[in-house]
Design a protein around this nucleic acid. Structure first.
Lengths: 355, 355
DNA sequence: CAGCTTGACTGAAGCGCTTCAGAAAGTCCA
DNA sequence: TGGACTTTCTGAAGCGCTTCAGTCAAGCTG
């Protein structure tokens, strides 16, 4: 049997014997018709199996899709294995969901961020980008479409809203803490930033040229404090747990070995902890390790991680509010640029100690 | 300055001096016009700042949105803190992405699955549901819309495609393994299934009435094997790590304490491991623990987890292929039901030992 | 009762695009 | 040279809905 064509609003209208506008109003503006008629319309609709206005047609007519595109740097599993991301996104979703928006996920391809054509074809009212490398093609596509944009942890672009955290300050806090404990030989462990496809040791200059805003800022924060200390910078080769482990081993096998490692995320710090355990290096006796984010796993490790806390939930919430603001304000708000930052604080736990 | 109205396909057409259809063909059917004209069209489009066909309008005309709705049982952070989910979803995304589809995330509300109105308003060509409780409102909404449906780890509904795993067999393998090791006093640890809002101990009958297919199946698999052994069933109060810990403690404080705990997921098993460590119970000497899924963290714990392996990547991939099949086959395929299962196997690691 | 207001409903113009049946203009071969 | 194709492009009919300016009748006021 060929399934009969899905009923449309017109079908309901003629079945009830009213105009199409009336049926539309029954769904969207109950105050525009009498309660009695509205009930009748809804009843007939149910009998006909009409599931309500078609979302796509409605979007075309209203020029609102009800979706927020989330542009990710990486594949979903890479992205979501990082608690910092999903906590932020969850908080974001909680803000936009009551307003009828869903999240459309655009995972990244090989070159940082989703391909431009995916962005151009995405049905969304607004884009949210999370730590894409500078100059990602996806950003141009967003601009070309004239989509409002909220950036998280990225440089502020003209005409967009931004939420970040005080990366530099946070990094400086961690560095200062370790300096105060007497450390003078440091390792800095950075996430993969596509600079050195193989990962590995970096000069400070190379690291400072990373295409990721947060990497640059955190690095600057560390270096601001460390002044004349001995510093080696290591970059993970990839985003996987394996790459992190490999980088951690490289860092711990350097000679002379750093007495303290500053990590740009908790994930990396946990990898250093695991590597240290495997190498029989005592933490915090022989090695101090500090993370960044204060994601939940940071407090579960042994020893629990000293880390820079940023309020990820607030970050997601604010991102959501900025997005809704841009949507409501329309072009008015979108021509202004807004930038906000969540505060950071140092959380001292067991992974750091005197040199 | 008020930003000039975004250019449309018509604007490009009249700027070039061709018909609207020609411009459309320039984007969608390059073989329908001469290369020279096509280039000219594209050039003028670029000059005008035309970003290509509007996704919504295109969707209305083609009745394809290019999005796949993923209906989740819970909030994003709950959902994505489970590696089993994001690994599956990532594999799914890798299949559908090359075909131009993105994922639209519909997080769950309080009553299992997203609210019906979100589903009715979602712009998607097909729905994929992941372990929703039976009878979730979202499922009715999917049906009302006539959306094709792929279910993962759920009972097969008429007219849909399904991918699951051999839950029952896998559970039986784990139970048999522990029986063979001489265990006779068992705990079974189930995820929260909204049955007992407070979590806690369950009778076997209560547990068997869980609204989640996988819970029922795994339970049946355990019980099939355990026959006349002593069995206590504990259900976590919620989906958070804290709830899991609380349930684990309850299980380990029972007296007499089970000598072996069968967990319905690795997450739960890891919680039991952590609780055991805190209580000073040696694993595997005093307690054996088995998980389910073989997600990556299972091999990272100490001791590493004995667990039932299912190929999550294959599951996601197959789900994606089923979805694409339904989309291509249209009503033909969607009137048939297809069900597939990924195989399971027992992975014995260090968390289980003789009674 | 004329004049005004209010509530209930409708007509029709879009929203921006795809697509299909042609028309116009070549091209090819006998 | 003429019929049969091809290639290239166009006109117009949708896709299913929202929305705005009305129309019409009923109710109210003085």
């Amino acid at each position: 049997m060929t399934r009969r064509r899905r009923p449309t609003l017109d079908d309901v209208a003629s079945a009830v014997g009213v105009s199409r506008a009336t049926v539309s109003n029954a769904y969207n503006r109950p105050d525009q018709l009498s309660a009695r008629l509205r009930e009748q319309v809804l009843r007939v609709a149910a009998e006909l199996g009409y599931p309500g206005p078609d979302p796509t047609a409605r979007s075309l007519a209203t020029s609102r899709t009800g979706a927020i595109a989330v542009l990710l740097d990486t594949s979903l599993s890479m992205a979501f294995s990082d608690p910092a991301l999903y906590l932020t996104l969850d908080a974001l979703a909680r803000v936009i969901d009551p307003r009828g928006h869903a999240l459309l996920l655009l995972p990244g391809g090989a070159h940082g961020g989703p391909p431009a054509d995916r962005v151009l074809a995405a049905q969304a009212d607004i884009a949210i980008v999370y730590s894409l490398p500078d100059g990602a093609a996806a950003l141009d596509a967003v601009r070309a479409r004239g989509l409002p944009l909220v950036v998280i942890d990225q440089p502020l672009l003209p005409g967009t809203a931004r939420i970040g955290c005080a990366d530099r300050l946070g990094a400086a806090l961690a560095a200062r803490h370790l300096l105060d404990l007497g450390h003078r030989r440091f390792g800095i462990f950075a996430a993969c930033s596509h600079l050195t496809p193989g990962g590995g040791g970096l000069t400070v200059a190379e690291a400072a040229a990373a295409p990721f805003h947060d990497v640059r800022e955190r690095l600057a924060g560390y270096l601001d404090e460390l002044g004349s200390c001995e510093v080696v910078v290591e970059e993970a080769a990839g985003l996987s747990a394996e790459s992190a482990m490999a980088g951690a081993f490289a860092l711990l096998r350097a000679s002379p070995r750093p007495t303290a490692v500053l990590c740009m995320s908790d994930q990396l710090a946990l990898a250093v902890l695991a590597a240290a355990r495997q190498l029989g290096i005592g933490v915090p006796d022989e090695l101090s390790v500090a993370g960044f984010d204060d994601s939940p796993p940071a407090s579960w490790s042994s020893p629990p991680l000293t880390t820079v806390r940023q309020d990820l939930v607030a970050k997601g919430r604010i991102a959501g509010e900025l997005a809704l603001g841009l949507l409501d304000g329309g072009s008015a708000a979108s021509s202004a640029s807004a930038s906000a930052e969540v505060p950071v604080s140092l959380v001292v736990r067991g992974s750091t100690g005197p040199a």
